[in-house]
Simulated assay, not measured.
Amino acid sequence: MINVTQTFLPPIEEYQLQVQRAWNNQWLTNRGELVLELEDKLKVHLGVPHLIATNNGTTPLQIALKLLGNQGEIITTPFSYVATTAAIVWEHCTPVFVDIHPEYLTIDETKIEAAITEKTTAILATHVFGNPCDVEAIEAIAKKYHLKVIYDGAHSFGVHYKGQSIFNYGDICSCSFHATKLFHTGEGGAMFANDESLIDKMFYSHNFGHNGPLAFHGLGINAKMSELQAAMGLAVLPYMEFILEERKKVIEYYNQHLDLSKLQTLKIRENTSWNYSYYPVIFESENQLLKVEIKLKENGIIPRRYFYPALNTIEYTKGQSMPISESIASRILCLPLSHVLSISDTEKIVNIINTNE
């Protein structure tokens, strides 16, 4: 079976060496030696001034919304994983959807201003499949209307835009270190900000509000990464160049051999150093997608309808119609992509799509 992705697992003895350090320290959580080391190494690797490692990629969004959302209206995208919208609703804010750009698939910055009301407090946009939003336009709008900007960068590990880490844009940005991501800690994530006072609030918010063992800054939750998660991250990080190179080979094969006359692929924003995180294709119709999906599964190939459905259509959002997002969500399919996908398997996938599209 060929799955849509496959988790990179480092040599087990290398993971065990990191875990042994935690055993030697007899310290498994509460920001031990491994978490601190991972944070330092990631700051260097990514080129960011501040980083807080977390237990997953969703709690950073919840913390960001708790600190910046003020239970107001949050302008957001209908084309993302459900966690983006769920975090808004969970933090007692109201999602206000803005449709997406038909090629970049990120929020359409030209439609944001029309959605702003006196209740708007923030913009929460997703760098879709690691493809950056128009961060300059969004920043200009946010400054004009005194709004905060939060980016869901779940897919964006290693992405650079105009020579800067994509995590350096916005008031707060998040990333996921889930097992399906390029870099992972099994479960895990991180949150980023440039403002030191904001980072301080984010830090105590992710640790129950602690200000030392017996005092508290304020309200907080438990979003800390464990030493066992950090051990995995420390074992995976040295292999990032290899992972990216192998994924790049697969994407180049897709680009060269897929019949793209009836398929749309993701348009990467100009001035972006991308990370080869996903390979989505958009069919001319949902029926065509379903036909190809059936043929792939008959041959043991498991793609993913990602993102589907459009988030404005799920029960608890009650969003207005978003025609571009709804159309693309019904026609988009992420093809298998991983560091171990062979050329022969890639050729098999391509042949099935080319003969059934």
Results as ranks from 00 to 15, higher is better:
Phe183Arg: 04
Asn222Met: 03
Leu214Asn: 13
Leu198Arg: 07
Ala230Tyr: 05
Ala190Gly: 08
Phe183Cys: 00
Leu219Gln: 15
Ala223Leu: 09
Ser197Tyr: 10
Cys173Tyr: 06
Leu182Ile: 06
Ile172Lys: 04
Arg247Cys: 03
Glu227Arg: 02
Ile243His: 03
Leu214His: 11
Asn222Lys: 10
Ala215Met: 12
Gly170His: 07
Asn222Phe: 14
Ser174Trp: 07
Ala231Ile: 04
Pro238Cys: 00
Ile172Gln: 03
Asp200Gly: 14
His217Pro: 07
Leu219Val: 14
Lys201Val: 09
Leu244Pro: 06
His178Gln: 00
Pro213Gly: 11
Phe208Thr: 12
Asn194Asp: 11
Gly209Cys: 06
Asp171Leu: 09
Gly218Tyr: 04
Ser176Cys: 02
Gly212Glu: 14
Leu244Asn: 09
Gln229Ala: 00
Gln229Thr: 01
Ala179Leu: 01
Phe192Cys: 06
Asp171Trp: 14
Ala231Trp: 04
Asp171Ala: 10
His184Asp: 02
Ala223Phe: 09
Lys248Glu: 12
His206Asp: 11
Leu182Asp: 02
Ile172Asn: 09
Ile243Asn: 02
Ala215Ser: 15
Ala230Met: 04
Asn211Tyr: 14
Phe242Tyr: 14
Phe203Glu: 14
Arg247Tyr: 08
Phe203Lys: 15
Leu244Trp: 09
Ala193Ile: 02
Asp171Asn: 04
Lys249Arg: 15
Ser205Ala: 10
Lys224Asp: 08
Gly189Pro: 02
Leu234Lys: 10
Tyr204Ile: 13
Phe216Ala: 14
Gly218Val: 11
Gly209Trp: 04
Ala223Arg: 06
Phe208Gly: 11
Glu246Asp: 07
Ala235Gly: 01
Phe177Ala: 04
Lys224Gln: 07
Phe203His: 15
Leu244His: 08
Leu228Cys: 03
Leu244Arg: 11
Phe242Gly: 02
Asp195Thr: 11
Met232Ser: 01
Lys181Cys: 02
Ser176Gly: 05
His217Arg: 12
Cys175Val: 07
His217Glu: 13
Met202Ser: 08
Ala215Pro: 05
Thr180Ile: 04
Asn207Glu: 12
Phe177Gln: 00
His210Pro: 12
Glu245Lys: 09
Ala190Glu: 02
His206Gly: 15
Gly170Cys: 11
Ala231Asn: 06
